[in-house]
Design a protein around this nucleic acid. Sequence first.
DNA 1: TCTTAAACTTGACAATGTAAAAACAAAGTA
DNA 2: TACTTTGTTTTTACATTGTCAAGTTTAAGA
Lengths: 152, 152
Amino acid sequence: MPTNELHTRLRESGLRATRQRTLVYGLLRRVGGHHSVDDLVCLLADSGEPLSRMTVYNVVSDLTGAGLLMQADVGAGRALYEASETWHHHFVCRSCGTVIDVPCARGTKPCLDAPSGLEFSIDEAQVIYRGFCHGCRAGAHSFEARSTERHT
Amino acid sequence: MPTNELHTRLRESGLRATRQRTLVYGLLRRVGGHHSVDDLVCLLADSGEPLSRMTVYNVVSDLTGAGLLMQADVGAGRALYEASETWHHHFVCRSCGTVIDVPCARGTKPCLDAPSGLEFSIDEAQVIYRGFCHGCRAGAHSFEARSTERHT
DNA sequence: TCTTAAACTTGACAATGTAAAAACAAAGTA
DNA sequence: TACTTTGTTTTTACATTGTCAAGTTTAAGA
């Protein structure tokens, strides 16, 4: 996706199209996968366009709020970000920590029908599946099968 | 639940029944609700039985592994623990951070049927619902209703 | 070009979690 | 009951992740 288009996307989402936001969004769209803020800071530095850590935190927060990025909380201070068009979930391996996308049946938020009769409004349901990936199989089995997609 | 019984529970779960484990497990059963490690350290200190932070981390990790505690990752370095008999999920208010239990349709792990055709084994599916609680309602509504249970 | 509100940078700091080694204690056994 | 073994706890230091606040810079509209 060319810079102009990224620029347009940002504006359409109600955000100012700054160099920093364009860089982060462009990077995530280009490389794909799940990345922590620290990852992003390093990748940007390596690409010759270093941004401050605080800026990256602000940018991913803004882009997530605008719906351009998805945030996956895969436990204990591990927040990962990705540029994705469709709402989906994540599998996390208990052994090696690998994160794998898991398609969502509905594909749009809030995905799950929450039980009715609750005193609050839900706009999103995030599911984290845990278990052991193919490489780490050990103890605990509940079902098995064959592969689909895999990121980072 | 008397100390003897806590003791027995621990042994049955394959853990040594140490004073520290008994204290933490007993506390969580007695007070109920969701608590961070820091919470627990303070509560224990207040009750005149101080434990080191590291010990509390070890204990909750061991008890969670043994199935006596549930861990709820409610985002960005917020790991909460609770003593619960049945598997369930959590709602987190985007505004005030309040955590509310949400019953799970099945009540046992792994709760959700994951999409078939995946190259890994799932033993647990944790769902985090996000939105706004009754007190914080603002913008975003997707449905509403009446209350059930509420903790911490 | 000029103006202004929004965004970025910097540096210090808070919160959360982990590593390693030494002291200690639970549980089984003699 | 005393002994032994092995797992647990404690301490200290540190790594990681995220936040605050003040000052500077910049995007976007007039």
